[in-house]
């Protein structure tokens, strides 16, 4: 990769006359806050380019305490690179849009405070590597939605009540509720080396969709059987339990321990454990 191009924000212009007086008064009124949010300079090394290629470009700007990486990207967009492409929406860690790789680790830009980063060195901001790049920090994550269609949908048992409703015990839904926290940021897909480095998108659905499969498969009302699909079509055997997906999940979902490994165990029940298979034959498959 070539040496990063460097751009610097224009120095703040000195305000004149009344504007300067008002600015001074505002600053004095907010002296406490001003003290704690003293501006400092930071360099952001942002990947710029498209599907054909690109490289890292340095942007130097004034930052202050409390800012997140997305704020810095927006500041770059406003002051230095108006055409910088970035996907974002809620700025509250709930829409899963602003996924990127910050200093090499998949993270949400809106949830990464600058205070957590070492600003004495350039902060690297790159698009996710597991998906095709569209432009700058924006990647095409549509594969995830296409792959999701390969999961068998929710198939509830017959309603429990004459009005067509069901009754569920809270204890039965406790386990799957964790999986519903997923915001589909696809950071787990990005960090998974099966997709990221080995590009097994045709054979492996990745951690996000295994969480979805776990949510459906463990649901107390569901009657569908996905175990054979998990082994063959969804390639659960590709997961070698690095737990990187759990590490990067912004919602703190214990993806590996609570979703993938229990699904692996269900595959073992069906395909690799003659004793469990015997028990299943006697008792019936779905419990």
């Amino acid at each position: 990769m070539s040496a990063p191009e460097t751009r610097t924000a224009p120095a703040p212009t000195a305000g004149g006359g009344m504007a300067a007086v008002e600015a001074g008064a505002r600053a004095a009124a907010k002296s406490d806050r001003a003290t704690s949010s003293a501006a400092k300079t930071a360099t952001f090394r942002v990947w710029r380019g498209d599907a054909a290629g690109g490289g890292l470009v340095d942007f130097t700007l004034q930052v202050s305490d409390g800012m997140v990486v997305l704020d810095a990207i927006h500041q770059i967009q406003a002051e230095q690179a108006n055409d910088l492409a970035v996907r974002w929406n809620c700025k509250a860690g709930k829409c899963g849009s602003c996924s990127a790789e910050i200093n090499g680790m998949p993270r949400l830009m809106c949830m990464t405070r600058l205070g957590e980063l070492d600003l004495s060195q350039p902060v690297t901001v790159e698009p996710m590597r597991a998906f095709p790049r569209i432009r700058d920090l924006v990647t095409d994550v549509s594969w995830n939605f296409a792959a999701k269609k390969s999961l068998k949908p929710f198939k509830p048992r017959a309603p429990d009540a004459p009005d067509g409703t069901w009754r569920m015990d809270q204890r039965d839904v406790d386990r799957v509720q964790e999986f519903r926290k997923c915001i589909e940021c696809f950071l787990c897909q990005d960090v998974c080396h099966v997709l990221r480095d080995h590009h097994k998108h045709d054979e492996f659905v990745g951690p996000r969709l295994l969480v979805q499969a776990a949510m459906l498969e463990m649901h107390p009302l569901d009657t569908e059987d996905r175990v054979d699909d998990l082994r063959r079509a969804h390639g659960i055997g590709y997961c070698n339990i690095t737990k990187c997906c759990t590490k990067v999940c912004p919602e703190g979902i214990t993806i590996t321990d609570n979703a993938i490994i229990p699904l692996k165990e269900r595959v073992v029940d069906r395909h690799f454990d003659p004793l469990a298979k015997l028990v299943q034959l006697v008792r019936g498959r779905k419990r």
Binding site: H193, R196, D197, H198, V268
Partner: peptide, 28 residues
């Protein structure tokens, strides 16, 4: 991988789908 989001030494990858690592399924 060597660690999360770090480049790997090999291009091929079987995971635990084939021999010998498929034998990990006998853990129980």
């Amino acid at each position: 991988p060597p660690s999360c989001a770090v480049g790997e030494p090999r291009k091929s990858y079987w995971g635990e789908r084939r021999f010998p690592l498929i034998l990990q399924n006998v853990h129980r």
